[in-house]
Design a binder for these strands. Structure first.
Length: 307
DNA sequence: AAGTAGCGCAACCGCTTCCAC
DNA sequence: AGTGGAAGCGGTTGCGCTACT
């Protein structure tokens, strides 16, 4: 007996998600919570594979996702966590709770990999000018065990240093990120939820702009004329989150806390559950402990640190 | 203005891991 | 202990946008 596919291959929609599908998915998850993805397509009527639903939720619609360019701290974290953990994007993402593993992976593949290669080339040039050979770097098998161990130690040291720097309390941006992500001060902050709502609102704005005439398929919008559809959907979506669409302007993030309705706070709770479910707080504190406890042990020659 | 090359990102595919039975 | 299904994960692809010629 062969393995059953996760979804019927016939009639399964592929490709980009429409805002309508997003709304259906979000409203379903708002009602039932994430999980049991297999049931999602049948219960929602979405012609999507369960995998696709989960992916859409975790990579795009989930509360707490921050979009836009990566900060220097995030970049540092990614580089050094990658050095430490390899391409385990989910593990790396657990230290950057506002970013998805997909985002981190994309950022690594499109920006950081190139950057590192360029750095490496520059260093190789510099070394060859100084009379050093890069052959031992390019041929790891040729180095002695002692050298290899030392290099490994150096890598670990580098990763610790960068993480330490990134987690340093005097870095206000990262500190505030941690506060909003882990609720160190007040988790009543709507940051995590708001960013998701903003994501969807932005999407809807694009939708409104790009497709004024859309078929009405959402369960929230009844049969209306095409001129009425869009506002109705937007209102419906706004009501889903307990506030008007206008509030979801990128410049109006601060207003989001005011327009949060009690029913939408579920998403915050869900987000909290998400965090605890992944043991992110323990992971971080362990990491911090590891970093700060070992500060005194960092006695490696700084000149050996090449980055 | 049209063509095209490069880039970024969302989504898919297939493999692995986890868990229930 | 073995098996099957669901979920998770990482690699890859393809589309749309933008900058450049």
């Amino acid at each position: 007996m062969g393995r059953r596919p996760c979804c019927d291959k016939v009639g399964v929609k592929k490709g980009p998600w429409t805002p309508e599908e997003d709304i259906v998915l979000v409203s379903y998850i708002q009602e039932h919570g994430p999980g049991n993805w297999r049931a999602v397509p049948t219960n929602t009527g979405l012609h999507r594979c369960s995998k696709s639903c989960r992916l859409r939720w975790t990579n795009y619609l989930r509360p707490g996702i921050r979009r836009g360019s990566f900060t220097d701290h995030e970049e540092k974290m990614i580089i050094h966590l990658q050095a430490l953990l390899g391409n385990r994007w989910a593990a790396i993402a657990s230290y950057l709770p506002q970013r998805t593993d997909n985002d981190i992976k994309n950022y690594w593949n499109t920006h950081l990999k190139k950057k590192l290669i360029e750095n490496k080339n520059l260093q190789a040039e510099g070394r060859s000018k100084d009379g050093f050979s890069s052959s031992s770097l390019s041929h790891p098998h040729s180095i002695s065990r002692g050298q290899w161990e030392r290099r490994l130690q150096t890598d670990i040291h580098m990763a610790r240093q960068a993480l330490c720097e990134a987690l340093s309390p005097e870095k206000p941006t990262f500190k505030s990120e941690l506060q909003s992500s882990y609720g160190f001060t007040s988790y009543t902050s709507t940051t995590t939820y708001a960013s998701s709502a903003e994501n969807i609102a932005r999407l809807l704005k694009g939708w409104v702009r790009n497709s004024p005439k859309l078929a009405s398929t959402t369960k929230n919008s009844s049969a209306t004329t095409s001129s009425e559809e869009t506002p109705n959907k937007v209102e419906a979506f706004g009501s889903l989150f307990g506030c008007g669409f206008e509030s979801f302007d990128s410049s109006a993030n601060s207003d989001l806390s005011q327009c949060m309705s009690p029913e939408s706070s579920f998403l915050q709770d869900e987000s909290k559950q998400d965090l605890s479910a992944h043991d992110q707080i323990p992971q971080l504190s362990l990491l911090e402990k590891w970093l700060f406890d070992d500060q005194s042990d960092l006695k490696l020659d700084e000149s050996a640190l090449i980055f």
